[in-house]
Amino acid sequence: MSTDVRDRIADYLAKFFPVTDLQDTDDIFKRGFVSSLFAMQLVAFVEQEFGVTVENEDLELDNFRSIASLERFVTGKLAAPVAR
């Protein structure tokens, strides 16, 4: 499951960082393509791709900083009971 999550995140981010290979722990906010629309697209991607809801409290930079942190965040959301 986790590898699948990681690969889907990496595939998506590859569209934004095509010039060099993005390593799992690379900080994507330091790689040049940073805009409010990019951040919103990232949230929309996570929600659509994995069927989770990103809440206010989830909007921590550490949840979105790298492939590894996104994988951790998504895996945690998928494992958590739905509470709305």
Binding site: L37, M40, Q41, L42, A44, F45, E47, Q48
Partner: peptide, 9 residues
């Protein structure tokens, strides 16, 4: 409506 991230661009 599909909640597609490409809706923004």
């Amino acid at each position: 409506d599909r909640r597609d991230p490409t809706a923004l661009p």
